[in-house]
């Protein structure tokens, strides 16, 4: 909510009565990412609605960082996120299953080698 909003307030008699349906605005949905401290990456914490990006950041501050949870906020329009589909899970991730040699534990070392 813009903090100077009171100044723009019309007199109550100037408010035409509105039905709730007409008034629905469906403000865009923003996905919120928070960096909890310097040195760590931003992490998804949830979403919220806001009229624009600035308001999304202000709302995210109030909703997701009331207890020093963050030092930086990213607000991303949910509609701009491209996600892989659960149906593609196998196609995308199965190929990694049989490549155990990508992990260091695959390799046997002689006991004499202490640190590698």
């Amino acid at each position: 909510m813009p903090r100077n909003a009171q100044h723009a307030r019309p007199h109550p008699t100037q408010q035409p009565p509105k039905s709730k349906d007409v008034e629905k605005q469906h403000w865009p949905l923003w996905e919120i990412f928070i960096r909890s401290r310097q040195g760590l990456s931003h992490r998804h914490v949830g979403s919220l609605h806001a009229a624009d990006a600035e308001m999304a950041i202000e709302n995210a501050r109030d909703v997701y960082t009331r207890r020093q949870e963050g030092v930086s906020i990213w607000a991303v329009p949910a509609s701009e996120i491209t996600a892989s589909s659960p149906d593609e899970k196998d196609v995308l991730f199965d190929p990694a299953d049989d490549k155990v040699y990508r992990h260091p534990t695959f390799y046997d070392l002689p006991d004499e080698v202490k640190n590698m």
Binding site: P10, K18, W27, E54, M55
Partner: peptide
């Protein structure tokens, strides 16, 4: 909700202007 209508409206207008 009803009393907040003008705030939502103003915020929407502000976002458009910006």
């Amino acid at each position: 909700w009803d009393d907040g209508a003008w705030v939502r409206e103003a915020a929407g207008a502000h976002a458009e202007k910006r």
